[in-house]
Design a binder for these strands. Structure first.
Length: 620
RNA sequence: GCCCAAGUAGCUCAGUGGUAGAGCACUUCCAUGGUAAGGAAGGGGUCUCGGGUUCAAAUCCCGACUUGGGCUCCA
């Protein structure tokens, strides 16, 4: 990062941090009884956690708060730093009746740290030098408001740029479920009005692209109160999308020697005891008790089932790697508050695959998966970043297996990461699965947001749990390893990302409906001609429909346009006479060639070729 | 699961204690149309569900369900 860029980043941080204080001060002016939590800087802005007891504030209060903030800003009060000893600080918190601050300070005195989260130490006046014992804490004052704070701040309240309060939501004190719920007031802030406006415009754009909205408008999927929360139902159009995306992935996998398998959706609980999932995820399983009292569960993942296909007979090292793939639905009893559109559901299709292999195969197998990931996301227009997700040595009970095993498998994966991207990856300490480290892929979408998508996981634990072996060159049983790989991850979740990425303008190969024929009227010759074109299109594998309804041409064009059909073609007397088509092409595909004439065959073949080659741009 | 907000026709929404509304969609009729909404008529709602307050509840209160914004969680 260039120096002045770094300066800008620091400056923005100080502005946002200062705004958190100004907001807290404003809220305290308006509600003197407010109990303050912490108020850090977050992406695009800041928040402050507050507690107003039984009279919480609502978004309707924002205008009032912003007004008060503006007063503080125009007063241009200087931010003044001062130090207190811990005891003085605790006395201050008591005198101010700020129990949350007092709790933080007490923790600080007790242990030299607030124990909880990184967040806290960023908030506190902690100077955690070499010595963990802290004696002094830092405060900042502006006007009549003083807060425990490490800084930095801008020089005075007049220098905080442009901001807007966005929303209020619940948040647990110090992020712990057992703690009281506070209110978190979010604001966004930028150096200039222009940047703020740009950010708000991006949010508007995101709203327009919301996959829940587009799913409704483009007739892709629905939810039913009768069926239940988090259980999406896909319409014929949505199902085409899923099928096409999945075919793409599975065809690539087959190139690399994967074989499709097929498993039932329930299993005895014993499978999850063996895999280690039971003790960790017992409460997130949909459980079923048979009439004879046996306990089953809906499968929340597929690895245990797949291991049993592998383990059904003894395997020679010569057969390895064995690669199973399967796109199949998994079921997880997610908490209702976590459900959201297609992003988080209770039943979702995974494009899952498991490679059973020897340690020496890991690199090659991981690189094959990586290759599929590159091709898939490349062709859909996503940029990927890589996260190397490792275990957190500090919380050992979250993971299975010995520290030694973890080290060696992480070293192995890291070598692969380095080979592919050098140092160009994010460290994901604590992001590993409980059974092994992962390489996770984050896709950046068309409006700059990133989403976790694909994953390659190394697993040395389940082969132990299920006693998976092969017979090696010496005739001995040798422990194997598993590589888990999902390209889309969950198709449902991937669709939510992809719908928002494309704003519903799917490339021809994915479009639920590729060509729509629009008849000018319902005369026999015209209807017959349209039927003939449709028949020929279908023969070429195209998804082609005819709108022969008794509506005006303008209306029918509008309908096709709203459904974002790539090609619509008006069919009237002219077409019947000349045998030429003048396609109306969706604007994002190709602007210049609207209404150029093509023979029916020429047009259909070009579109069919376009669909088959999975390119995004028309070559008409 | 927790905090806050919302739920009115298939969809988007108006209606705030006194007989349920609009636009689009749907049905029928008229018009037979040329690149983003032709015209008319009609059908459709126990106001999510269950309790309560009231002479009277879509409207106020409580609970459940669903949705949204967060928190917590995510194999």
């Amino acid at each position: 990062m260039a120096d002045n860029e770094q300066n800008n980043t620091d400056q923005l941080y100080a502005m946002r941090h200062s705004l958190a204080h100004i907001m807290a001060a404003a809220i305290q002016h308006l509600w003197p009884e407010v109990k303050l939590g912490v108020g850090p800087v977050v992406e695009n802005g800041f928040y402050y956690d507050i507690d107003l007891g039984k009279n919480p504030l609502s978004e309707e209060d924002f205008a009032k708060i912003e007004g008060e903030m503006k007063k503080i800003i125009s007063a241009d009060q200087p931010f003044q730093q001062s130090d207190k000893t811990i005891d003085q600080a605790i006395d201050w918190a008591k005198a101010e009746r700020q129990p949350y601050k007092q709790e933080l300070l007490n923790d600080l005195r007790r242990s030299g740290t607030t124990v909880a989260q990184d967040l806290d130490s960023a908030e506190l006046g902690l100077e955690t030098g070499d010595d963990s014992k802290v004696n002094e804490v830092s405060f900042y004052t502006n006007g009549d408001f003083t807060d425990l704070c490490r800084g930095p701040h801008v020089a005075s309240t007049g220098r905080v740029g442009a901001f807007k309060l966005m929303r209020v939501s619940g948040a647990y004190w110090r992020g712990k479920e057992g703690n009281p719920q506070m209110q978190r007031i979010y604001g966004v802030a930028f150096q200039s009005e222009k940047e703020l406006r740009q950010h708000l415009a991006m949010l508007e754009e995101a709203k327009k692209r919301d996959h829940r909205k587009l799913g409704q408008e483009l007739d892709l999927f629905i939810f039913s109160d009768l069926i239940g929360a988090g259980l999406p139902l896909f319409t014929p159009r949505g199902t085409v999308l899923r099928r096409q995306l999945d075919n793409f992935v599975q065809e690539m996998r087959d190139e690399y020697g994967y074989q499709e398998v097929s498993i039932p959706h329930i299993t005895k609980k014993d499978a999850y005891i063996a895999s280690g999932h039971w003790q960790k995820f017992e409460h997130e399983l949909f459980r079923i008790t048979t009439r004879e009292g046996h306990e089953f569960a809906m499968k929340p993942m597929n690895c245990p089932h797949h291991t049993q296909i592998y383990a059904a007979r003894s395997r020679s090292y010569k057969e390895l790697p064995i690669r199973y793939r399967e796109t199949t639905t998994c079921y997880r009893d997610e908490q209702t508050g976590e459900l959201s559109g297609l992003s988080r559901v209770r039943a979702f299709a995974q494009d899952d695959a498991h490679v059973f292999c020897r340690t020496r195969h890991i690199e090659e197998e991981a690189l094959k998966v990586w290759d599929i990931i590159d091709r898939f996301y490349g062709s859909l227009g996503f940029d990927l970043t890589v996260r190397f997700s490792t275990h957190d040595p500090k919380s050992t009970d979250a993971y299975s297996g010995s520290e030694e095993k973890w080290q060696s498998s992480e070293d192995q994966l890291l070598a692969i990461v380095k080979q592919k991207v050098g140092d160009n990856y994010i460290d994901g300490v604590g992001e590993a699965a409980f059974y092994g480290p992962k390489i996770d892929f984050m896709a950046k979408d068309a409006i700059g947001r990133t989403w976790q998508v694909a994953t390659i996981q190394l697993d040395f634990n389940q082969p132990e749990g299920f006693d998976l072996t092969c017979v090696n060159e010496d005739g001995e049983r040798e422990r194997i390893v598993m590589v888990h790989a999902a390209i889309m991850g969950s198709i449902d979740r991937f669709l939510s990302v992809y719908i928002e990425h494309t704003a519903g303008k799917f490339p021809v190969w994915l479009a639920p409906e590729q060509i729509r024929l629009i008849t000018v009227n319902q005369e026999d010759a015209i209807t017959k001609f349209a039927e003939d074109v449709a028949r020929r299109g279908k023969k070429l594998g195209l998804r082609i429909t005819t709108d022969n309804t008794n509506e005006s041409v303008g209306k029918k064009i509008r309908t096709a346009e709203l459904l974002k059909v790539p090609y619509s073609i008006v069919i009237g007397e002219k077409e019947v006479e000349t045998g030429q088509l003048m396609p109306r092409i969706r604007k994002d595909i190709e602007v210049n060639q609207q209404h150029e004439q093509h023979t029916v065959d020429e047009f259909l073949k070009t579109v069919a070729h376009e669909a088959k080659s999975r390119v995004s741009k028309t070559s008409l």
